[in-house]
Design a protein around this nucleic acid. Structure first.
Lengths: 228, 228
DNA sequence: CAATCATTCAATAAAGTAATTGAATGAAAT
DNA sequence: ATTTCATTCAATTACTTTATTGAATGATTG
């Protein structure tokens, strides 16, 4: 049922999927879904250059998601009357499913205490120097604000599920928390590992970092309150 | 409603979409949907190298479309219990919508006889030499088999809608048919243009090509009967 | 506990995609 | 006609993704 004969069909679907596979195009599509707009307007709303917006819009047009209409000097893009809404809804549903999966996994792993791979300070420092790891601070925002390892990203454990997108998939993630008595980073690592991320924890946490005489960063005003 | 705050969300959806944006991954997903399989089996069924299949499978896993289970030496991939079916159905629906759109457009344009850009033999030959055009023969398969311009792709006009994927989007398409009295290539050009393809027709068609003393190709046995 | 074997990882090479610039198009207004 | 102006095109550059190879992993089997 899925031999050579259906390969061109898969290729066609893949092309459609790729058309949705770019932040700017999804954003443009979302703007167009709200209202018909000219290229200039869309570029402005999305914060893109004109030429760049134009190219992304043409990409969407070729995929059949939008159509154009000329009125005087400008060209207006609007949604085609194809089944775009269900398609986007299905995408969102999958995203939500993933969030739930991770949330329940974190809850589950709270009970199952198997041991995990740790990273020692020496390797961590080396890897940080060559920028080959993502350092993840899973403590609360307030704790992070007071002091954190320089360069670390802060995603409190309860929010990890819905903020996965902030982690690079191509790098190993090193989670840390308050130290070896604190289970937060271990849970994060278990959850991330189960999702196919490469993850370890820096077991001694922020105290261990400070004990080595290394500098920490802090936030003056609480600046990074990104929306849900 | 669609400001900076939702950008990470779009980025997340885009990543999901990209996970479906590759022929091999869709094919693997289709195989997995039919039955749980080991990596080796999937690689074999899809005609991929082991490492390549493994990487695509991990990509699908990270996107939450599949999960794994270890049994002895091998690892089995099966569908996750997320909403994958509706997602794929929505993609297919969009593909079908595009086919229909094009089909009706071709039907419509049969009546509306506006003139189109043509390409002359000289330019055609030059562009063919530098491989910067896709030459499209829109006549019936049997006619193509008897003789066609060397290098031309054959997609009979009635099949154009569902075989669009065979045309490169990054090159101009030059359609030709039986000659200037024949409307097939003109219709193809109108349809392709409306979809955002860059398209012109070689108005004098195959007779014009032969009149210049240029060689034609033919097929011995009818070899290229690709499935729907 | 050494060997085997399915799978994954790592590194590199190849291909494809995106952003940017400035020029070209083509409809409308003067 | 000529100018204006929104959009697109073309060409370059930078970036990202994919394929390939061979080595590493890690669970079973003898």
């Amino acid at each position: 049922m899925s031999e050579a004969s259906s390969l061109p069909f898969f290729a066609e679907l893949a092309e459609l999927a790729r058309s949705l596979g770019h932040t700017h195009r999804l954003q443009l599509l979302d703007l167009i879904a709200q209202n018909e707009h000219s290229v200039e307007r869309l570029a402005e709303l999305a914060g893109l250059s004109l030429a760049n917006a134009s190219q992304h819009l043409q990409h969407l047009k070729r995929a059949g998601f939008v159509t154009t209409r000329r009125d005087g000097k400008r060209i207006f893009y609007r949604l085609s009357d194809g089944p775009i809404a269900p398609l986007l809804a299905a995408l969102k549903a999958q995203a939500e499913f993933n969030h739930k999966q991770l949330a329940t996994f974190i809850a589950d792993s709270r009970s199952r205490p198997d041991r995990l791979e740790a990273i020692d300070a020496e390797e961590l420092l080396r890897r940080m120097r060559e920028d080959s790891v993502t350092l993840l601070d899973v403590r609360a925002e307030t704790e992070y604000a007071v002091g954190h390892v320089p360069g670390a990203v802060n995603i409190p454990l309860p929010e990890l599920a819905r903020r996965l997108a902030e982690l690079r998939k191509d790098q190993e993630v090193i989670a840390y928390c308050r130290g070896s008595h604190c289970a937060l980073s271990a849970e994060a690592v278990r959850a991330l590992s189960a999702l196919g991320y490469k993850a370890r924890h820096f077991d001694s946490g922020l105290p261990g970092w400070q004990a080595l005489g290394l500098a920490i960063s802090s936030l003056q005003s609480s600046g990074s309150k990104a929306g849900l």
